[in-house]
Amino acid sequence: MSKAKIAPSILSGDFADMANDWKKMLGNKPDWLHVDIMDGHFVPNLTIGPPIVKAVRKRIPKGEAFFDCHMMVQNPQQWVKPMADAGADQYTFHYEADGDVAETIKLIKENGMRVGLALKPGTPSSCLDEHINNVDMVLVMTVEPGFGGQKFKAEMMPKVQEVRALAPKLDIQVDGGVDASNVCSCADAGANVIVAGTGIYGAEEPAEAIKLMRAAVEKAIADRA
């Protein structure tokens, strides 16, 4: 099974000084930085795009941080090359978005990025059957995508278990309302990549929150070994 990875959702931080805020978060020793890209169409919110990611990447070279980009966009193929050029390491798009899933996966690989496939809460794990062997990660949303600060949906844990059963060695990510109070349930269900916004940024000691979450995932991995 893949290793534990903790990915702070960096859009929970300081928009006014983004590059320095991301650098500051790196001081807390996360594994990835989770970057939410929203187009105002697939979800109602609108956030940053490739030019901002590219500008921050100039300040934080590839060897210093893994940019885990969650593309909440209606036309995921449109943004593959711009995000690759901007310096994204992983491109996670939604199964529910417009376009051919297999072709989008192929395009992401051709542009040198890892492939993530995201599922909204209402989307069943059965949709993965023809794609799971072609992706690097599955993201099981534990809130409806589009806004931070939502309540964690514990009822998504059976879906995480289903995905883990399908792919014992795959990276499985959870995103939405995850914090110290529920990270163990995520890890026990089979998630090894934990995205947390306020669960890290709102902690008194973000580094300690990251360590706690990583320890929970590592314990769950060891218990399943």
Rank of each mutant, 00 (worst) to 15 (best):
G13I: 14
D17E: 13
E96H: 09
A65G: 04
A216F: 04
L166Q: 15
L170H: 08
F67C: 11
I194L: 07
V56T: 12
K62F: 12
V143T: 00
K159V: 01
S9Y: 13
E204F: 08
A203Q: 06
E103D: 15
I10H: 09
A207L: 12
V143Y: 00
I108M: 05
G49E: 03
G112C: 05
K211A: 15
L212V: 14
P50Y: 09
N45C: 03
I210T: 09
R164W: 08
G199T: 00
D136Y: 01
S185H: 07
R57M: 04
P124W: 02
V195N: 14
M137D: 10
P8F: 10
A207F: 04
I52T: 05
L170E: 06
A220Q: 07
I221W: 07
T142D: 00
F67W: 12
L166C: 06
E155F: 12
A84P: 09
W32T: 03
I172Y: 02
V43L: 05
P145L: 00
D89A: 04
M1R: 13
L46T: 03
S185L: 08
A222Q: 15
R114F: 06
G87V: 11
A97R: 02
P76V: 15
D68M: 12
S9W: 03
Q90W: 09
P168W: 08
A19V: 07
P30W: 06
T92K: 09
L139V: 03
A222S: 14
G116L: 01
L166Y: 03
V115D: 08
T92M: 09
T142A: 01
A55L: 04
V163C: 01
C184W: 09
C69I: 14
D36H: 11
T47L: 02
V135D: 01
A86L: 13
R224E: 12
L26R: 08
I172M: 10
A222V: 09
V183E: 04
V43H: 01
A216H: 11
D68T: 08
G49H: 02
G40E: 05
A65I: 07
K23C: 05
A225H: 15
D171F: 06
K24R: 13
D17G: 06
L46A: 04
A167W: 13
T123C: 06
C127F: 10
K151I: 14
P82L: 09
L117R: 08
L117A: 04
E162G: 07
F42Q: 02
N75A: 11
R114P: 03
K106R: 15
V217G: 07
Y95P: 14
D136R: 01
C69S: 10
A220P: 01
H94A: 10
C186P: 02
Q74M: 10
A4E: 12
L212M: 15
V115L: 02
V35R: 03
T198L: 03
E110S: 05
Q161Y: 04
V53G: 07
A222E: 15
V80G: 15
K153W: 00
M38C: 02
K169I: 10
A216D: 09
G177I: 00
I221F: 02
I108V: 15
I60H: 12
L139P: 01
G122V: 02
I60F: 09
S2F: 04
D179F: 01
V80M: 14
A222R: 13
P158E: 05
V135C: 08
Y95R: 11
K24D: 13
V138I: 12
L33Q: 01
V80A: 10
G87D: 08
Y95C: 05
F67G: 10
A102W: 08
V183H: 06
P82M: 14
P82D: 12
